[in-house]
Nucleic acid binder design. Structure first.
Lengths: 190, 190
DNA sequence: CGACGACGTGACGGTTGCGTTTCGACGTTC
DNA sequence: GAACGTCGAAACGCAACCGTCACGTCGTCG
């Protein structure tokens, strides 16, 4: 019964408003104003700010990281890091993600949602490609998927979402090579 | 003329308030309330929220990362990462830093302050220890200090401040070894 | 055609914070 | 002991936003 175009306008307004002012200062009034709709239309769909943001953001976030299976660990790694780097260079995403991450540190509901939408999936992907790599003999048997994820995502996140220094054309490639070396050369965990 | 104990109480209140509600929702009223102080006392010292937060935070942040010179790159690296990991596991810091980082993405003044207080110093340290390592022959000649910093700080930041998964006793050690391998094994930049 | 429901508008009372001002109390300084 | 400046408390007018409600419009379904 709710009109789809209006819902879409609100979703869009929420994302932009989140990017501009952040979760802490996001107000329903501003969202409605920006979407060109009445507050009523918003409250008819979600009962408060938290619920609204969580539903909208997790909807967007879930279609994110792919599960690569290119046949070699090196290219799995490169593909994965390339996708992540693209995502983190998206204007809106690079504003919203750090903001929600910070907010998650003090709001368990946000934390749980992001956990489910991002981190869990990442870890699954990490286990998958590391597992395959070990099977193929490309990595030593004790290779730790959790460490692998930290090494893959950490530098990209730091550089693109936190430090925000622009990267060169071959930065991702260089970084992927470095991660490769780290995982191959590091002793098995424990 | 301003009473020092009151200034200290306000500084303390700002840090705690920042950790609890974040910059976006931080209000001067709440700071004064928490410090047990009149709003007048706050406005007598700083003229608005931004100025107050910047002055206080950068004061705290500047005495942060040391310049290690242990004689070997491996132990420089380990020391540095240990210090960073300790800092990022501090309850207050691990709440405030991601919050301000996110805020920096939309407020140039915050960005510039953090840049000066953290990133620039980090890069200097990075250049220093990588430079020494190259001189000693521990790293190939083309080793890139910027990449090194991303590899050192990124995973720690991601794991401790973003993902917030607890780390084991030897995690930092393992990570340092991985970074070591990455820097030694990676091709020279360009 | 008539009922229904979602729509935008605008207003509601209540809360919170802004930055400023006034007040009386207290402690220094001279 | 008088003058000064900081202190906390409280109030100021103003603005934003909360969540709700009443209204009139419009499109759709039956």
């Amino acid at each position: 019964m709710l009109r789809g175009d209006i819902t879409a306008a609100i979703r869009n307004a929420v994302m932009n408003e989140l990017a501009e002012v952040g979760y802490g200062r996001l107000s329903i009034e501003a969202v409605a104003r920006r979407a060109g709709v009445g507050k009523t239309a918003v409250y008819r769909r979600w009962s408060n700010k938290l619920e609204m943001v969580l539903e909208i953001v997790s909807g967007v976030a879930e279609r994110s990281v792919p599960m690569p299976d290119t046949g070699s660990f090196a290219s799995d790694l490169q593909l994965l890091m390339f996708v992540v780097s693209k995502a983190l260079q998206h204007r809106i995403a690079s504003q919203i993600i750090p903001d929600l991450m910070a907010e998650a540190a003090r709001n368990p509901q946000i934390a749980e949602t992001l956990q489910r939408a991002l981190r869990t999936h990442q870890l699954t992907v990490g286990e998958q490609i590391v597992g395959q790599a070990v099977k193929r003999g490309e990595l030593p048997a004790g290779a730790d998927p959790e460490l692998a994820v930290d090494l893959m995502v950490g530098p990209l996140y730091w550089r693109l979402a936190v430090s925000r220094t622009p990267i060169g054309d071959d930065y991702v490639e260089t970084l992927a090579a470095a991660v490769m070396a780290a995982l191959r050369g590091s002793p098995p965990a424990h």
